[in-house]
């Protein structure tokens, strides 16, 4: 399986998935079923994770397609700009959902404000994603378009080309992103260690619910690193798209992201009380969380050695 194949598999997930999650959310509000609201927030978070490879495989596909005859480069670029906006909105929806789940865990009731924000972001996401999907279709299926018309333009308040120019034209931006990426890395990893080492048996006197309050700082670190990392990817996609190390890094990032959801919302984690030994399953999950982040760092550091990044 190569990147275009992966993109064909994943490219409908952000559109169809958001529609389903949005439907679940609306249904849960109509039926006043809080469990269903929570599930829909969890689905939005997972969708945000899956949108990462959906977007990245699209970037890789674009690089391949541009080399082919009879392909409209303009259509590819329009699709990319739309995808970038959709991706950003999807990440914001995932972030808002995560914040809702985190807060919910502490106060045991949903926040109306948070649900409203998720709803608005999800509506914006689905509108953008639907437009982006149309533009993507037009690349290989120009017969979709009315005769003589140019490729559809979608939301384009972010231009991939402008970000690329920004990063490559200013020599100070790349090193600044490096500094940010490493600070984000240890901020995230520090909280991950504290939370998961508790599960593994350190600081047993502390109930898991006390450590839960630290999680937003891990998410802040993750946010810094997703933004800085994506700026590099957009600036120099050819460094990452055929880089085996990047592929593995993203794979472990998704695993680690799923673990973050587990420690944020699952009862099994939350209920580990003061002085209690965590269950074997909790310990195994905690170990896999630390291992996943270590792998993310390993394959990140190996980008220039296993792959072709500089």
């Amino acid at each position: 399986m190569n990147a275009p194949h992966l993109h064909l598999i994943l490219n409908h997930v952000p559109t169809v998935g958001t529609a389903i999650a949005l439907g679940l959310l609306l249904l849960s509000l109509l039926r006043r079923q809080e469990t269903l609201t929570r599930v829909s927030l969890e689905v939005f978070y997972v969708l945000a994770l899956i949108t990462l490879p959906a977007y990245l495989s699209g970037v890789a596909t674009g690089l391949e397609l541009e080399k082919m005859p009879d392909i409209s480069v303009e259509a590819i670029h329009k699709h990319h700009d739309g995808a970038l906006v959709g991706f950003a909105l999807m990440l914001l929806t995932g972030l808002a959902s995560w914040l809702g789940l985190w807060q919910w865990r502490r106060v045991s009731r949903p926040s109306g404000l948070n649900t409203g924000i998720v709803l608005v972001l999800a509506l914006l996401t689905i509108t953008t994603m639907a437009g982006t999907a149309t533009m993507g279709g037009e690349i290989r299926h120009p017969e979709m378009m009315p005769e003589g018309s140019t490729p559809t333009a979608g939301p384009n308040w972010i231009h991939a080309a402008s970000i690329q120019a920004l990063v490559t034209d200013h020599t100070w931006i790349w090193p600044s992103l490096e500094a940010l990426h490493f600070v984000g890395l240890w901020l995230l990893f520090g909280v991950v260690l504290v939370v998961n080492l508790r599960m593994l048996g350190m600081m047993k006197a502390v109930p898991f619910s006390a450590l839960h309050r630290m999680l937003p700082w891990a998410v802040l670190g993750l946010g810094i690193n997703i933004v800085s990392g994506m700026m590099w990817v957009i600036a120099t996609p050819e460094q990452y798209m055929s880089n085996v190390s990047f592929f593995w890094k993203m794979g472990f990032l998704i695993l680690a992201g799923l673990n973050l959801l587990y420690v944020t919302t699952f009862d099994q984690a939350w209920q580990v009380g003061a002085g209690e030994d965590a269950s074997f399953a909790n310990k195994a999950i905690a170990f896999s969380a630390i291992a996943s982040w270590v792998c993310v760092m390993y394959f990140g550091r190996m980008l220039p050695f296993l792959g072709n990044a500089f």
Partner: peptide
Amino acid sequence: IGLATVAGLNGAIDLRLLGVASRI
């Protein structure tokens, strides 16, 4: 890995002192 652990755990302790997760 070493720097992530050293600075990361230090950072978590600092955040706790600054008022984050004050039940720890």
